[in-house]
Simulated scan of single mutants.
Amino acid sequence: MRAGTQRMQAAVWHGARDVRIAEVGVPTPRPGEVLVEVAYCGICGSDLHEYADGPHAIPVAEPHPGSGATAPLVLGHEFCGTVAALGAAVTGLAIGDRVAVEPNYRCGTCPRCRAGEYNICRHFGFAGLMGNGGMAEYAAIPAYMAHRLPEAVSLEQAALFEPASVALHALRRAGAPPETMAVVGLGPVGLLTVRLAAERKARRIIAVDVSPVRLERAAGLGATDLIDAGREEAAGERIRELTGGEGVDVAFEAVGSEISLGTCLAATRRGGRVVLVGLAPKASLDTFALVNNEQSIVASVGYRDTYPELIRLVAEQGLDLTPVVTSTIGLDALITHGFEALMDGPGNQVKILVDPAAHRREAPLLPSPADRTEILT
């Protein structure tokens, strides 16, 4: 991990259950890079997997081709902040610009990149997983990752653009905007899928989860119907009942399990579509039923060209993504009140933001609504 002479705090992954809040050097931006003073960094499910039993995506033996990095490295790919320094040959950005970070590495030269599909680049990866990321006071990133923010977009909103981009790309992969849809799994991406579908005026949005807290949040974000999968033995059949026996146009699988995929297929109408967003290692299918119903299954990975639309929706149409945020913590609280709190299962926490500079202030930057906790240590 290259670094300058100034020091900062960072969450450095060394191995499973070995993430250290350490003092390291502030990175120096190389040519084509910018140094971002990080305002917020969200905790993602992939961070939890790396912490719990990684490495999964983190390079440990061979450097990732997009970053040149190997572990130990700084976690965090859902981040935003303010440009603090510019590397050589950077244009279009200035020190002091507030930016949202689109953390995708891309080579720009492989066939998929040349086709504009950089989210499936041959050397695809994320800053914060395959290279140093945003769970630190500063992060050096390729300049192409930085999207300048208008004044109407707060940094707290910008901290949610990465998971919102996953949701937006999944909605695009669904094809024509569906009139009826189901979202199975109400983690941050599932909840943001509900919110963006409501923004797109979907007529019926059926939200499915085992957590009453998350179901309640889905209702506040625009879900028209709620199904508690912990109480309903056959959630797919219940969705069909709610749609007069027809089934929904599109179902989004946002859990990553064979059971939830089965729910989505059972809930989807003939000729409908299931969009895979969750990461299930394996699943078996009733291909006879799939063919006879002429259903289709499409996968959705990452995102591309989503940040400009999200910036526009927030700045011009007042889209509010922040209801998914349930707490803001400092780096010193990352393990106990961040990773461990989220791994305890579906409780009151949904999206936790990390404020890397919290330890330098006596008071938090964010307001504290009734349903949010502030743990700034």
Rank of each mutant, 00 (worst) to 15 (best):
H147Q: 14
A152Q: 10
E117R: 14
A159S: 15
A198W: 12
A146N: 11
V166M: 11
A146S: 13
F124I: 13
E199Y: 15
V248T: 06
A140E: 10
V183S: 04
L215Y: 06
R195P: 03
Y138E: 04
Q157C: 12
R204K: 14
R238E: 01
R240M: 08
P177R: 08
G125Q: 07
E199P: 13
C121G: 07
T224L: 10
P212A: 05
G190K: 02
H123C: 04
P150G: 14
A207H: 02
I227D: 01
P142L: 14
G125V: 01
A182D: 09
A207K: 04
V184W: 02
S211G: 03
V166K: 04
G187V: 06
I239C: 03
L226E: 12
L221K: 02
A223N: 10
P212D: 08
G187C: 07
G190A: 05
I206N: 00
V184P: 02
E246W: 11
G247C: 14
H169Y: 13
L221I: 13
P178Y: 09
V153R: 04
L196S: 11
R172H: 12
G128D: 06
G128A: 15
E199N: 14
A146D: 07
G236E: 01
L155I: 12
A202L: 07
G230E: 12
E156F: 14
R204F: 01
D249S: 11
V153W: 07
E156V: 14
V183E: 02
I206Y: 01
V189H: 00
E117F: 04
I141F: 11
A198F: 04
A152S: 15
A158P: 02
V213R: 08
A182P: 09
V208A: 00
A152R: 13
V189D: 04
R172W: 12
V183A: 06
A164Q: 07
A167G: 07
E137L: 11
R240Y: 06
G220L: 11
A223W: 00
R200T: 06
I239V: 15
L149C: 09
N132E: 12
G222W: 03
R217V: 00
G230L: 12
P150L: 08
V189F: 03
G230S: 15
S165V: 12
R148W: 05
A207W: 01
A139P: 10
G128V: 04
L242Y: 07
F126C: 01
R148E: 10
K201G: 03
N119C: 04
S154K: 09
L168K: 08
G230F: 13
A219E: 13
A174V: 15
A229W: 04
L186R: 00
M135L: 15
Y118V: 06
A207N: 07
V210P: 00
L191Y: 01
H147N: 12
A159M: 10
P150S: 09
L168Y: 05
L242W: 09
L192E: 09
E232M: 10
E237P: 13
A140L: 08
Q157T: 14
Y144N: 06
F126D: 01
